[in-house]
Amino acid sequence: MTSVAQVLKSKPDAATVYTIAASDSVFDAVKLMAEKQIGALVVIENEAIVGIITERDYARKVVLLDRASKVTAVRDIMSRAVRFVRLDETTEDCMALMTERRMRHLPVIDQDRLVGMVSIGDLVKNIIAEQQFTIQQLEHYITGERP
């Protein structure tokens, strides 16, 4: 089973976790997500994680409610109950949590410090790679070829 630590190592920008202040505008958050081609930001206040803001939060709590993103603070629409995972948890643990809670992003914590973010896309990519490896091994076994 693959661990969260292994998934993070496979990401080209694993060491970079994008954050935003709770007092920043939603416009700034969406702009940063667009620039970095990501779907969520961890919200930080006084170096503590206080929430997470996602594209879904923006769509449902700004666009649909006809709010102005430039004057709405991140704290007004962020999700406060932040679910997270640790480095030693498995991809299966992450998938189960994401499915149960209907989430697409999980911050990764190590010794109470934010060290990464895994998305549903990261997990799917990892599962596909594992399946391809298994298929190759089975093909080699069936044909008698050595890898």
Rank of each mutant, 00 (worst) to 15 (best):
M1C: 08
T2V: 09
S3P: 02
V4G: 02
V7D: 01
L8T: 05
S10T: 11
K11S: 08
K11Q: 09
K11V: 10
P12W: 01
P12M: 07
P12S: 12
D13S: 13
A15T: 10
A15C: 04
T16N: 13
T16Q: 13
Y18K: 08
I20K: 02
I20M: 05
A21T: 08
A22Q: 08
S23N: 14
S25A: 11
V26F: 04
D28H: 12
K31T: 14
L32F: 01
K36A: 12
K36P: 06
Q37W: 00
Q37G: 07
Q37P: 01
Q37S: 13
Q37R: 13
I38F: 05
I38L: 07
A40C: 12
L41Q: 02
L41M: 03
V42Q: 07
V43Y: 01
V43S: 02
V43E: 00
V43I: 06
I44C: 06
E47Q: 15
E47I: 10
A48I: 09
I49E: 03
I49W: 02
V50N: 11
G51T: 10
I52Y: 03
E55H: 08
E55L: 10
R56W: 01
R56C: 04
D57I: 09
K61F: 02
V62T: 14
V63W: 10
V63N: 09
L64G: 05
L65W: 00
R67P: 03
A68P: 11
S69N: 09
S69Y: 04
K70D: 14
V71S: 15
T72M: 11
T72A: 12
V74E: 02
R75N: 05
D76R: 05
I77M: 06
I77S: 04
M78T: 07
S79L: 11
R80N: 04
A81G: 09
A81R: 15
R83I: 14
F84Q: 10
V85I: 14
R86T: 15
R86S: 10
L87K: 15
L87I: 13
D88H: 07
T90P: 03
E92L: 09
D93P: 02
D93Q: 08
C94A: 15
A96Y: 07
M98P: 06
M98L: 12
T99W: 01
T99D: 08
R101C: 07
M103F: 01
R104F: 06
L106N: 03
L106C: 04
P107V: 12
V108D: 00
I109K: 02
I109M: 13
D110I: 12
D110P: 09
Q111I: 08
D112A: 14
R113T: 15
R113M: 09
L114F: 09
V115W: 02
G116C: 06
G116P: 01
I120K: 00
I120Q: 01
G121Q: 08
G121A: 10
D122V: 03
D122W: 00
K125Y: 01
N126P: 02
N126W: 00
I128K: 05
A129Q: 07
E130I: 14
Q132F: 03
F133W: 03
F133G: 08
T134P: 01
T134Q: 09
T134R: 08
Q136D: 14
Q136S: 13
Q137M: 13
L138K: 06
L138N: 06
E139G: 08
H140N: 15
H140P: 00
T143A: 04
T143Q: 03
G144N: 04
E145G: 06
R146T: 13
P147N: 13
